[in-house]
Nucleic acid binder design. Structure first.
Lengths: 244, 244
DNA sequence: TACTCGAGGATTGTCGGACAATATTGTTGG
DNA sequence: CCAACAATATTGTCCGACAATCCTCGAGTA
């Protein structure tokens, strides 16, 4: 029946009932308009084209992306709950700007959840340590080569690895939300060269404890690592934070 | 200047600049239409008028509440991120129905965060123990009187107390979301009489540890208490859960 | 019987326009 | 410097429209 696979995607039936078995055709729907706009805004924030505190108006974004106000509103809502934008009734949205206390609060929750992720992911990572080791090697290389961008990328994947392997959708979703709010701060954080070395040492502690199967040590190491990042961010100058 | 207070609310200026001091008039904006619809749906779910798995259509809700489809869509979105409704592209929303695994995932995250809440709230609760003691007494009374409704109410406030006192907005928001998804299950859970007694004993353990200032014990007591609730829910019959 | 196909209806996704409610800004005058 | 008002910009909500997609169900077929 190989001929089936050369048919263009469009003419495939959505479901095939053969021999009483229901075959589901993987049906990746094209992203909704609102989702596309949301992604575009996210990219703009990540790329620094939109700075924290900046105001976004519905009509402007609508015409810029060639979509209707409805879709932009929907995108705004999603990004607001994702923690990337801040919403005020009758005043619109702005790129979220965190106060010192908000950063503190976020890191407190994040450290707890990342510790949980380490604990949940430990068995799986231990039984197949290749992925973790590869990531560690990559970070070591980046440090040795003094390549900040590379380290930043590997660092992001390092922190995403544990929730991912933990196989807990709620955990992944929650941590994603928190990370979105923190992205711009994390970016600024990485320019500090000394911190990168310290950070990598902390990563190594975590990795070793995980591979050794020492859950308690791995958890607290991660907890302290995240807390240290939070403390470091707090040392940034005042104008990186919103008043209050 | 007492005469000012007899003026109707409408004619008050929004801000008063007097003697160079900016006075903010507390401006409780009337809830947006979308928010009202969202609240109504929430009440309907809590009251059992809408059962898990049930489908909600935009036009039907719009005409029922006398609002436009736009507002209903917005309400749906909020309730989806709040975990009360489940959304599928091109298929609309249904009252969320959790699978066993999802319940497990939720309780894992929730136990971690409630333990964090206990830890953060401990100092404040210890320096002013009246509130905690009053709640404990209330729950004891409910158990003694075999009053399930009263215990349920006090139980809800007990679990809300720690995040509230912890003074961490992110924590409160995150836990609220998780609780919303679990509401219907918690409701079913409370019909089990034996569990109520066990639950109250666990509460007492937590309270004692907190008032004694024993952070470690308090944390693990809360963690285990939440985990026990999760395990209990898992014992419900299959038809309370979504397949998968 | 087991399966495919297609028509028709229901529902969602997106659009454009409209208008009131509210916020922001600028101006005026004391 | 500050109150009061006018002008403007933006959001909140509504309506109507239509294409895209999903669901149902009956007819056709091997």
């Amino acid at each position: 029946m190989l001929w089936l696979f050369v048919l263009p995607y469009d003419v495939w039936p959505k479901t095939l009932q053969l021999f009483g078995i229901m075959l589901q055709v993987t049906d990746r729907d094209p992203l909704s308009t609102a989702q596309q706009v949301a992604s575009a805004i996210t990219q703009a924030v990540r790329g620094g084209h939109l700075v924290p505190g900046q105001r976004l108006t519905e009509t402007e974004l609508a015409s810029r992306h060639g979509v209707s106000r409805s879709s932009v509103r929907e995108a705004f809502q999603r990004l607001t709950v994702d923690g990337l934008l801040a919403f005020e009734p009758h005043r619109g949205v702005t790129v979220r700007r965190l106060s010192r206390k908000e950063v503190d609060d976020l890191f407190a929750v994040r450290s707890s959840l990342e510790a949980l992720a380490v604990s949940l992911a430990l068995p799986a990572l231990r039984s197949e340590p290749a992925r973790l080791r590869a990531l560690q090697a990559e970070m070591d290389d980046a440090v040795a080569a003094n390549d900040m961008a590379k380290f930043s990328d590997a660092n992001t994947r390092f922190h995403a690895l544990f929730p991912d392997v933990a196989d807990n959708a709620v955990l992944v979703e929650t941590l994603t939300r928190l990370s979105n709010s923190l992205y711009w701060l994390q970016f600024r954080m990485l320019v500090d060269r000394d911190h990168v070395f310290a950070s990598n040492a902390e990563h190594r502690r975590i990795v070793e404890a995980v591979l050794k199967g020492d859950r308690q040590t791995a958890e607290t190491a991660m907890r302290e690592h995240v807390a240290a990042s939070g403390a470091l961010i707090q040392r940034l100058s005042d104008d990186h934070f919103a008043p209050n």
